[in-house]
Write a protein that binds this DNA or RNA. Structure first.
Lengths: 151, 151
DNA sequence: GATAGCACGTTCCCTTAAGGAACGCACCGC
DNA sequence: GCGGTGCGTTCCTTAAGGGAACGTGCTATC
């Protein structure tokens, strides 16, 4: 399809999309996160084509987001698990869940619930400033050029 | 390309991807957010094909994420702006920025800086529990089936 | 009053990616 | 030997993206 690569753009959104912006990639991460972590399992859970799943897994491993680990020899069998880099991408998934739950849920309600272990409550994520802890949403920030900005 | 639609899946991640999962969509939102909000501006800023930009804008407007507003008559000229639904998607972009800044930055440093208006500091977003305010990351939650789960 | 230019698309052709099904292969259990 | 399992790979068809040219309604300029 001759798609433009985003990795070279001077933009962290574009670079992040280069890693997980392909179709299916976030859903693969979700599956691995919840324990659906073998090729056959992911394939049948998502209904993704085997060819595309092979490509995506290879790419995510190369990107350092997933690790391919052999869990059995003779015959060799593999599972995929999140690296530290990949685990932090789960935060992105949690924000997608919060937005989807709010704006796209059906009458049946949200398909999945999240219980915060620390407090035991069913809750969702909120964005806060890493510096002062205050709310940090679209209108709360000022965007400025950084040191790695393009010419 | 005969791509599978994600909108019907019982998963808020998949449904969110159905809205902004197409290539370029998050970058279009970013542009609109920072004030690059007209067809020509977005096209030349991103280098996206005019055909695809037309399709994406139409889709995002239909999804209620953008609003198409006429800012001039004779000849009719249009600009795009974020709806409330779209503004909350900016939070997703901010998380992508935080992750990209941390894991994908070059030696030059992050391309863009964010100043939190409330405290004046250059900062990034952090995820917290909407209930207790504690940190909420990959390991901090328990995933449970919700009322809208699939059969 | 023809010409150039701008903003916003639309149309056309070519290349490439996704879907789907069949095939391959190493091993295990019967 | 024979079917089953896990994990891909190959092949074909269809559809989506890239790029450039074209269209349209209007304004400004020579």
């Amino acid at each position: 399809m001759q798609r433009t690569r985003f990795g070279d753009m001077a933009c962290s959104i574009a670079r992040t999309l280069d890693v997980i912006g392909e179709p299916w990639s976030p859903l693969i991460l979700r599956d691995v996160y919840v324990g659906i972590d073998r090729f056959e399992q992911i394939q049948s859970d998502l209904g993704i084509s085997r060819k595309v799943l092979t490509e995506r897994l290879k790419w995510l491993v190369e990107a350092g987001v997933l690790e391919r680990r052999q869990y059995d020899t003779r015959p060799p069998r593999y599972e995929y698990l999140l690296t530290a880099k990949g685990s932090e991408l789960v935060e992105l998934l949690m924000v997608m869940v919060a937005w989807g739950d709010k704006w796209l849920a059906t009458e049946a309600g949200p398909p999945v619930l999240y219980r915060h272990r620390a407090c035991g409550e069913m809750s969702h994520v909120e964005l806060r400033c890493s510096s002062c802890g205050g709310s940090m949403r679209a209108g709360d920030v000022e965007v400025l050029p950084g040191p790695g900005a393009a010419a």
